[in-house]
Amino acid sequence: MLPILVVADAEPRRRLADILRQAGYFVAEANSGESAINLAYSVSPKLILMAIVMQDSNGLEAAAKLRRISDFQSLPIILLGSVPPIGMNDEPLASLVSGFLNIDASAKELLATVRSHLPVNDQ
Protein backbone atom coordinates (compact mmCIF):
# COMPACT_ATOMS: atom_id res chain seq x y z
CA MET A 1 0.00 0.00 0.00
CA LEU A 2 1.42 3.38 -0.95
CA PRO A 3 1.51 5.98 1.80
CA ILE A 4 0.31 9.52 2.19
CA LEU A 5 3.31 11.69 3.00
CA VAL A 6 2.70 14.45 5.57
CA VAL A 7 5.38 17.13 5.59
CA ALA A 8 5.18 19.73 8.37
CA ASP A 9 6.60 20.73 11.73
CA ALA A 10 5.99 18.24 14.52
CA GLU A 11 2.93 19.76 16.12
CA PRO A 12 0.47 20.03 13.22
CA ARG A 13 2.01 16.98 11.53
CA ARG A 14 1.26 14.52 14.32
CA ARG A 15 -2.33 15.62 14.55
CA LEU A 16 -2.92 15.27 10.81
CA ALA A 17 -1.03 11.98 10.62
CA ASP A 18 -3.05 10.56 13.52
CA ILE A 19 -6.34 11.47 11.89
CA LEU A 20 -5.25 9.84 8.63
CA ARG A 21 -4.01 6.71 10.39
CA GLN A 22 -7.26 6.38 12.29
CA ALA A 23 -9.06 6.64 8.97
CA GLY A 24 -7.02 3.64 7.80
CA TYR A 25 -4.43 5.34 5.62
CA PHE A 26 -0.78 4.37 5.58
CA VAL A 27 1.10 7.52 6.54
CA ALA A 28 4.75 8.58 6.29
CA GLU A 29 5.98 11.76 7.97
CA ALA A 30 8.75 14.23 7.19
CA ASN A 31 9.75 17.43 8.95
CA SER A 32 11.49 19.24 6.12
CA GLY A 33 11.43 19.61 2.38
CA GLU A 34 14.69 17.78 2.00
CA SER A 35 13.67 14.76 4.03
CA ALA A 36 10.35 14.78 2.14
CA ILE A 37 12.18 14.42 -1.17
CA ASN A 38 14.39 11.64 0.15
CA LEU A 39 11.41 9.87 1.64
CA ALA A 40 9.40 10.29 -1.54
CA TYR A 41 12.11 8.43 -3.43
CA SER A 42 11.99 5.48 -1.08
CA VAL A 43 8.25 5.17 -0.43
CA SER A 44 6.77 6.74 -3.61
CA PRO A 45 3.75 8.30 -1.91
CA LYS A 46 0.41 8.60 -3.66
CA LEU A 47 -0.30 12.00 -2.11
CA ILE A 48 1.69 14.66 -0.26
CA LEU A 49 0.41 17.12 2.33
CA MET A 50 3.03 19.86 2.47
CA ALA A 51 3.15 22.75 4.95
CA ILE A 52 4.04 26.06 3.31
CA VAL A 53 6.11 27.04 6.32
CA MET A 54 8.42 24.72 8.20
CA GLN A 55 11.08 25.46 10.69
CA ASP A 56 13.86 24.35 8.40
CA SER A 57 12.44 24.72 4.94
CA ASN A 58 10.05 26.28 2.53
CA GLY A 59 7.25 23.94 1.44
CA LEU A 60 6.74 25.70 -1.88
CA GLU A 61 10.38 25.29 -2.83
CA ALA A 62 10.25 21.64 -1.83
CA ALA A 63 7.14 21.17 -3.97
CA ALA A 64 8.92 22.78 -6.91
CA LYS A 65 11.89 20.47 -6.44
CA LEU A 66 9.60 17.44 -6.36
CA ARG A 67 7.87 18.59 -9.52
CA ARG A 68 11.19 18.69 -11.35
CA ILE A 69 11.71 15.00 -10.64
CA SER A 70 10.03 13.02 -13.35
CA ASP A 71 8.70 10.37 -10.95
CA PHE A 72 6.71 13.00 -9.06
CA GLN A 73 5.51 15.14 -11.90
CA SER A 74 1.89 14.14 -11.49
CA LEU A 75 1.91 13.41 -7.77
CA PRO A 76 -0.89 15.34 -6.02
CA ILE A 77 0.55 17.89 -3.57
CA ILE A 78 -1.79 19.64 -1.13
CA LEU A 79 -0.47 22.75 0.59
CA LEU A 80 -1.02 23.26 4.31
CA GLY A 81 -1.26 26.80 5.67
CA SER A 82 -3.54 29.32 7.28
CA VAL A 83 -4.71 31.04 4.10
CA PRO A 84 -4.38 29.87 0.48
CA PRO A 85 -1.34 31.65 -0.97
CA ILE A 86 -2.04 34.54 -3.30
CA GLY A 87 -1.96 33.42 -6.91
CA MET A 88 -2.69 29.78 -6.13
CA ASN A 89 -4.61 29.40 -9.36
CA ASP A 90 -1.98 31.03 -11.54
CA GLU A 91 1.44 29.93 -12.66
CA PRO A 92 3.87 29.09 -11.28
CA LEU A 93 1.87 27.87 -8.30
CA ALA A 94 -1.00 26.31 -10.21
CA SER A 95 1.09 23.58 -11.79
CA LEU A 96 2.95 23.08 -8.55
CA VAL A 97 0.16 22.20 -6.17
CA SER A 98 -3.13 20.39 -6.49
CA GLY A 99 -4.94 21.98 -3.58
CA PHE A 100 -4.93 23.82 -0.30
CA LEU A 101 -6.00 22.80 3.17
CA ASN A 102 -6.10 24.84 6.36
CA ILE A 103 -3.44 23.43 8.61
CA ASP A 104 -5.94 23.52 11.51
CA ALA A 105 -8.60 21.76 9.45
CA SER A 106 -10.99 19.42 11.20
CA ALA A 107 -10.71 15.67 10.72
CA LYS A 108 -13.74 15.82 8.45
CA GLU A 109 -12.28 18.50 6.20
CA LEU A 110 -8.90 16.76 6.09
CA LEU A 111 -10.35 13.41 5.06
CA ALA A 112 -12.67 14.98 2.48
CA THR A 113 -9.75 16.86 0.89
CA VAL A 114 -7.49 13.83 0.90
CA ARG A 115 -10.20 11.66 -0.62
CA SER A 116 -10.90 14.15 -3.38
CA HIS A 117 -7.23 14.14 -4.44
CA LEU A 118 -6.64 10.40 -4.47
CA PRO A 119 -7.10 8.34 -7.62
CA VAL A 120 -10.59 6.86 -7.75
CA ASN A 121 -9.50 3.30 -7.25
CA ASP A 122 -7.39 4.28 -4.27
CA GLN A 123 -10.12 5.72 -2.11
Binding site: E61, A64, S82, P85
Partner: peptide, 20 residues
Protein backbone atom coordinates in the same frame (compact mmCIF):
# COMPACT_ATOMS: atom_id res chain seq x y z
CA UNK B 1 -0.53 33.61 15.89
CA UNK B 2 -2.52 33.66 12.66
CA UNK B 3 -0.86 36.88 11.64
CA UNK B 4 2.55 35.43 12.48
CA UNK B 5 1.68 32.24 10.60
CA UNK B 6 0.29 34.13 7.67
CA UNK B 7 3.32 36.40 7.58
CA UNK B 8 5.61 33.39 7.59
CA UNK B 9 3.57 31.85 4.77
CA UNK B 10 3.72 35.05 2.77
CA UNK B 11 7.46 35.18 3.26
CA UNK B 12 7.76 31.57 2.18
CA UNK B 13 5.65 32.24 -0.90
CA UNK B 14 7.69 35.35 -1.66
CA UNK B 15 10.97 33.50 -1.25
CA UNK B 16 9.70 30.80 -3.56
CA UNK B 17 8.46 33.23 -6.16
CA UNK B 18 11.70 35.19 -6.03
CA UNK B 19 13.61 31.96 -6.53
CA UNK B 20 11.28 31.00 -9.34
Amino acid sequence: VKVVQRTAELMAANAFLKQE
